[in-house]
Design a protein around this nucleic acid. Structure first.
Lengths: 217, 217
DNA sequence: AATTTCACCGATAGTACTATCGGTGAAATT
DNA sequence: AATTTCACCGATAGTACTATCGGTGAAATT
């Protein structure tokens, strides 16, 4: 009941945050096509025209959204990496490597949903961001695998490591989405499967590296 | 130079095909947000208002597009399955199981792109179709794995098989997209990796089935 | 206390699109 | 040959949205 007296800039910043929150919610619920200055402003409780006090246009708001989302994703990757470094060589850790991204996705599923959508939508303003994020994620994961002892010396092995990382990443996203949709209740089970998938790939990598050109049997 | 005299219904059908083709191209290049009766009609070479001679509205055109795309996808699945049945127990075939979808994706990449986009876009008219297609693909693949001898008897194993199929499917899509983007030049290599991934998962499945509750080491 | 700043407002011009309607001429039918 | 059908056309009313502009009052500054 105590009225909180805000300075003008504090109030402005609050409104800005409201706009960003509103945009994120609409983006998640209705997609980029559902975004409009009308809807975002109304959801934030201000007039449509006041939207432009805070952002030059919708494009700029989306850019800000992408930057903030990217920061959150990078922080997650850093955390996962740090944990992996704390216990090098730990086998149970291999599994942990997969639990962390799964959990982080489930904590903020809207970020992944938006990213996946933008990644494949040529009309999306967030497309470049999404493509870069996906590439960063892929390389991060490839580095993780390399850290587990599967260093790639030549071009071919490096590419293979990247392909494996790409595949595992995609599988991670798919299982996380399935979990959110209620199909896969147990995240640990998902982590186990990802571990098993990556073990299979790495076993193959070891078997074919500097040996036969290509024989997965 | 010989003018082909078309009956009225032939001409109408031709225009209809042109509209569908134009819509598919625009959908792939600009996304669903870029679709409009103006653009589609113009690209097909008719007046915007004539669009409505062929379709009730854009929604209906999208439905038709989804149905045709779905038919093509189902045909691919049937073909893959048929081939797998021809050589049961063939180990090299396990690899073939992955090459066929990869090739089919690369033959019509726009179908997958559109599907992935729609799958995660709440505003998409094609969403239901995309979700159903993804589910069908997942179950198809789970059945494929079961056919390889990893029959799932209880609820847990069935779910695990579905999770593995889901993961492998996602990886398949990711590698196909990477191939199309020029990152992975060799489709065979991609098929090898998918084979290796699935071997790892199935090995784990065999190791934990009806034994320990969950231990991936 | 007087003045300035500025976050927000309502109104509105401009843009892009949808979907309908009456008209037209060639194909199809009689 | 006369009549009907219909794929397509241009015009247009209606809808949703963007982005600007002048105005307002409370906060901030003088």
């Amino acid at each position: 009941m105590t009225s909180t007296p805000l300075t003008r800039s504090e109030a402005k910043d609050l409104t800005r945050r409201k706009l960003i929150r509103a945009a994120l919610a609409i983006l998640d619920e209705e997609g980029e096509a559902g975004l409009s200055t009308v809807k975002v402003a109304k959801a934030a409780g201000i007039a449509q025209s006041s939207f432009y006090v805070h952002f030059k246009d919708m494009q700029e708001l989306l850019r800000v959204l992408a930057e903030e989302g990217g920061e959150r994703l990078r922080a997650t990757m850093r955390e996962a990496r740090r944990k992996a470094r704390e216990h090098p060589g730990d086998l149970g850790l291999h599994r942990e490597t997969f639990r962390i991204p799964l959990e982080s996705i489930c904590r903020h599923p809207e970020l992944l949903r938006i990213q996946i959508r933008a990644r494949h939508d040529p009309s999306s303003s967030l497309r470049d961001f999404a493509v870069e994020t996906a590439a960063a994620y892929r390389e991060h994961h490839a580095a993780d695998l390399a850290a587990l002892g599967y260093t790639a010396d030549d071009e071919r092995d490096r590419r293979r490591l990247e392909m494996i990382a790409d595949g595992i990443n995609a599988a991670t996203n798919a299982l996380a989405m399935g979990h959110l949709e209620g199909r896969y209740p147990d995240l640990d089970e998902a982590a186990d499967i990802l571990t098993a998938l990556s073990r299979g790939a790495l076993r193959w990598l070891r078997a074919t590296s500097n040996h036969e050109p290509s024989d997965p049997s």
